[in-house]
Structures are given as C-alpha cells and as structure tokens.
Design a protein around this nucleic acid. Structure first.
Lengths: 279, 279
DNA sequence: CCGTGCTTGAACCTTTTGTTACGGGAGGCG
DNA sequence: CGCCTCCCGTAACAAAAGGTTCAAGCACGG
C-alpha cells in the first residue's frame, strides 16, 4: 500500500482543472507541503483567488474538504518520516536497497530522538540496587525483555523476568514498595500489560515503558517511556531499533554501576566455572 | 543555524514540564511533525490528557497558542524542504555520540555486506516447506532464535525452537532427513552448539549459521553462514545488526512463501481469536 | 494534622473556520 | 444577436476550533 504521493497527483491532474484552480494547485506545489496546512482563506489569498475555488479544487481531486486533504497530507508526512531517503530517491525498486537503508536509518533516528532526560531516568532506576526490577514483554517484544534480563542479571541482583502466567506476574508486583516494572509493549498492544502496569502503580511501583511511536496504552500510567521507530522493509514492524535502545540502556547502567557491576560479573563467572556449567 | 529545530527544543525543555505536559510532548515527538497539525482535542486525546494541558505546554514553550505553534512547524517544514541534508545533522540534546553513529553504521555494514547468494540460499531453505526447521542459539543469541521462531511459525509449519536441554536437542536432530538446523552462535561460542551441528550434519541435515565476524567454530560444518557486525558502544558485543539480519530473512521468506504464508497467518489469527487468547 | 502551592480536568464562551447557496459575468454556439 | 453554459467571487450560515475561567485533587512542608 504505497501511499500516493500527493504532490504527484496534484501535478498529474493539473490540466483537468480550471485556470483559477490551477493557480491554487501551483501555490500548493510551490510551498509543498507546508502551505497545505494553512487555512482556506490564506491559501486563497496567496493564490489570488477566493475561498470556494480552493474548495472546488480539492473536491475535484476527490477530497471532501480541507480537513480531509490535510489528513492525507499528515499521513504522507508520517510515511516520509518513516523513510526520509525515499523523498529524494524516487527510485523505489529493489528490496535490497530498502533493507540496507531503512533499518540503519530507523536505528539512528531512534537513538538520536531519545530524550536524554528520559534515558537518564531509566538508567538511574535500573541502576538503583535498592529497587527490585521486573521485566515483562508482549508476544514479540518479550524477546527484548529477555535480552535486557540476560544483561541486567550480570550487572546487579534482584532482576526478575516475568513470564506469561498471570498469577506469577501478579505475585511479583504484589509485595509492593520501590520496585521498577519495565514493560515492553509494541503493536499489537496487549491489554494484560496495561493491567499489570496499573497494578504495579497501585503498589507504588515505578513503571518504565519501551514502546513504538504509536504509543502503547501503558503510556498513560508509565513514569518514563522510551519510544522506538519500527519502520521496516517487511510487512512486520521492526524491533531492531528497540533492541538498540536496550543495548544503549545496558551500556549506561553498566557505566552507572561501575565497579560494583564488574565485581558481580566476575563473581558470576567464577561461580559458573566452579559448577562446570560452561562445558 | 537556521530556524531552531522544534523537536530539539521540545526534547531539551522536556524536564521543565509537568508530568501531563510531558505526555503531550512525547506524543508530539513520536508523531513528529504530523501530529502537530492536528487539533487541540485530538492531540489531547492521544496524549491522554485534556485540552488545556496541551495549551499550557505550548505556552511554556513560548507559543501564543496552537496556530502560532503550527506556523513555526510550517516554517520548519519549508526550511527542511529547502535543505534536505539538514535531516541528518540533527543531533541536539539527545543521547551520546558514539551511540547514535556506531549502531546504525554497524547495521548498514552488516546488511550491505551480506552476500546475496548466501541470503538467497538461507531464504530458500527456510521457505522449503518439506523441510523441518530447527532453531537454536547460545546464551545471548538465543533471543535471536526465539525471535526468528516467533515469525517463522506464523509463516509455515514444522518450525521448532530447541531449548537448552541436551536430550531434547538430540531428539530433534535424531530423526533425520531433510531438516534445517539454524544455529545462532556469537562470542563466546558454545561448544555444545558445535556438537549439535555435527550431529545434524551426520543425519544429512543442512546447517545454517548466524554468527559474528570472528566466526563461530560451527562455521566449519555450516552449509551457509550469515555474518554480522557486532560493534557496540558498550563493553558487550551488539546483537542489533544480527537482529536486522533476522528480520531481513523473515521478510524474504514471507516474500518467497507468498500467499501460502498469508493464508497460514490468517488461519493462526482466527484460531487464536476463537480460543480467546487475545484478551 | 492542616494549609499552601502547583497541577489538572470540566464546563463555558468566543472566535474563526469551512462550507454552501446565490448571483454576476465571460465566452461559445446556434 | 441572444441564450446557454461554465466559471468565479460575495455573502451568509453552521459547525467546530481554540482559549479562558474556575474548582477539585494532590503532594509537600510546616
């Protein structure tokens, strides 16, 4: 479902329009896409025509009114946000291209777009050894929680990965006080995670959320949320940027914990070797 | 130094805001810049706050109201339209430097460096519905196998994720014939995975390997190997590029299986809904 | 425990906006 | 020459938007 380039159809169907309508189309194209978000009056004045003419052009293009047109514009902006390269590289074509450009770009935009303050808060929470850390994820995003868990258990104690069982989950948040619940929730969001987060909040827990740009419902109760891009060359959303976020968090937590973490890692290593688990 | 990047000031001044205002800012950033052109009511609803809160945030940022803010947004859109490169040097108050450049670069180099022939072979193997597919991973890389498993089971049948238990693993490769064993093995490599791969080969299985650039020992017995970069800003190796490889493979397999996969996905969806598992 | 500050949401009001209906005018064909 | 058709702008209308006020809720400190 490649979204129709609005500027394209504007150019293509330009000769079916009346002279005055063409003037409007020209202005729309010249200031694309910003002027599309102006009001009818402004567009009309800039085009040197009058209000209804603008409406008539939009009607001819198949829009029910200015709001309808603007909604289409917004959608196109969103898609463009998804693939900034596509703007200047109109040759869509090969899947190999999209695969090699989309994901790195998404990772970059995700990391560059992380508010430093939010990241700091998350790191501070996870590095606080007085708090218990509970990790949970949805169907796919559970692998993120697992990955984070694998790292965190090496850096500190009292880190628990919650499984799918509701009772176990409930028990984990039950004995309240100063715990941190980190929720990974991506489309399609799972209602149970919201319930769990609410329960955690009710027990005075702190809720950290990893989600996509459409924002899981858990956002409402979350104390901090880290948002990832999910653009992908495939039909599925990508979890790659989110994983990059996880690794970034881990790196920061390691930095925050410092020697304490290194000691623990060494101790774990030793214990494992003593038990002969590494063969 | 053109017009101040709105997203930047939004991020920078995010901690002077009240909790509810932060929610609004996050929504604004997550859907940047399109949602900025929505109405107050819509933005408020999406943020889970109420109208006046949106206005208060804008007021705090120095705008006289939503129209004022939207005008700034339009100007920024115009400037961006003028200088396309501005998209890439927007590193304002966000996370560190190495973190935002290393990972995307590693992902890019990994995907660009994948030999097309190898990728095609892997896809062909996984898309061959006559073969059983066995997935296995190491301590950390197991999450990759899990992730791949989650996707593949939706696309085709006879996909098994092996767990850590040696007996189960052995049983899976025991009943021979055209199976595909996909091994994820990254530093530090696990000897047991090599044993398993050897056993699979002995039963006339095909071995596919996902590994890092130092090449797991499994390479020797693998029929195909996909190599990922692992550069990371932290002390650990990164699995982000490898995950990008997994997603790329999934996308290709979906393309290869085509309608058959879509039918299966629909069937799974239906079955899950019938069982009421989605609540 | 009580008050004080800030924060937030509900209701209301005002303005602006999009939209529609109508009339005038230019151009083309009979 | 006159009529018809198409196109365009003015004016009025209804709807929805942004903005303001006020009171309740909450955390914090005395």
């Amino acid at each position: 479902m490649t979204v129709a380039e609005l500027a394209g159809v504007l150019r293509a169907r330009l000769d079916e329009c009346s002279p005055a309508e063409r003037k409007v189309a020209r202005v729309l194209l010249a200031g694309y896409p910003a002027v599309g978000f102006e009001t009818v009056a402004v567009i009309a004045r800039r085009s040197g025509v009058s209000g209804p003419t603008v409406l008539r052009l939009l009607d001819r293009l198949g829009f029910r009114g200015l709001p309808d047109f603007q909604q289409a514009l917004r959608r196109e902006l969103d898609d463009r946000q998804a693939s900034p390269l596509a703007l200047y590289d109109e040759r869509d074509g090969s899947a190999g291209d999209g695969e090699t450009s989309l994901l790195p770009s998404a990772v970059h935009r995700t990391l560059a777009g992380l508010p430093a303050a939010d990241l700091d808060r998350v790191v501070a929470l996870l590095a606080d050894r007085r708090r218990r850390v509970l990790l949970v994820g949805g169907r796919f995003s559970r692998v993120l929680a697992e990955y984070l868990h694998l790292h965190l258990v090496q850096l500190r104690d009292r880190v628990v990965l919650l499984d799918a069982d509701p009772v176990t989950r409930a028990a984990a948040v039950a004995d309240g006080g100063g715990h941190v619940l980190l929720v990974c929730d991506f489309r399609r969001y799972e209602p149970r995670l919201l319930d769990l987060a609410r329960a955690a909040k009710a027990r005075r827990g702190t809720v950290v959320l990893l989600t996509d740009r459409w924002l899981s419902p858990v956002t409402e109760v979350a104390d901090v949320a880290l948002v990832s891009q999910v653009d992908s060359p495939s039909a599925y959303d990508s979890l790659v940027p989110a994983m990059a976020v996880v690794e970034t968090v881990v790196a920061r937590v390691l930095g925050a914990l410092g020697d304490a973490a290194r000691e623990r890692m060494a101790a774990c290593e030793q214990a494992a070797q003593d038990a002969g688990l590494l063969d």
